[in-house]
C-alpha cells in the first residue's frame, strides 16, 4: 500500500496549491501588506518543492535544506525591506493602497 505522505506527487501538488493561492491573493488584495503576505505563500510553495525533491530525488539531502534556508533568509530580508518601505510610503501619502501611490519622483 502506498502511503500518501510518502509520495512525491502529494508534495508537488501541495506546493502548486500554495503557489496558486499566492498568485490569487497577489492579484486580489488591495493593500501592500496583503500583497506581501501572498508573496510569502509563494515562497513557501517554493520551499516545499525544494524539500520534496530533496527528500525523494536528490543524492545529498543537505542541498535542498540549504536552499530552503536560503529562501527563508531572503523572505525575512524582503519582509523587513517591504515593511519599512510601507512605513515610508504611509508617512508620505497617508495611505496603504497601492493605487494611491502614483508619483515616481526622487
Amino acid at each position: 500500500m502506498i502511503l500518501i505522505s510518502d509520495n512525491l506527487y502529494t508534495y508537488l501538488i501541495l506546493a502548486v496549491f500554495l503557489l496558486i493561492a499566492g498568485i490569487y491573493g497577489l492579484v486580489q488584495h488591495k493593500t501592500f501588506i496583503g500583497m506581501l503576505v501572498s508573496t510569502e505563500l509563494i515562497l513557501n510553495g517554493a520551499g516545499i518543492n525544494f524539500m520534496a525533491f530533496n527528500r525523494f530525488l536528490a543524492p545529498d539531502p543537505a542541498i535542498g535544506q540549504i536552499i530552503t534556508l536560503f529562501i527563508m533568509g531572503i523572505a525575512a530580508a524582503e519582509a523587513a525591506i517591504v515593511v519599512s518601505f510601507i512605513i515610508a510610503v504611509f508617512r508620505k501619502y497617508h495611505s496603504i493602497d497601492p493605487d494611491d501611490v502614483m508619483e515616481l519622483k526622487g
Binding site: I33, V37, V83, F90
Partner: peptide, 18 residues
C-alpha cells in the same frame, strides 16, 4: 523565522498603518 519573526514584522507594519 517565519511564524516568529516575519509574521511579527508584518503585524508591526499593519499597526503603524491605518
Amino acid at each position: 523565522i517565519y511564524v516568529g519573526a516575519v509574521c511579527i514584522v508584518l503585524i508591526f507594519g499593519i499597526m503603524v498603518g491605518s
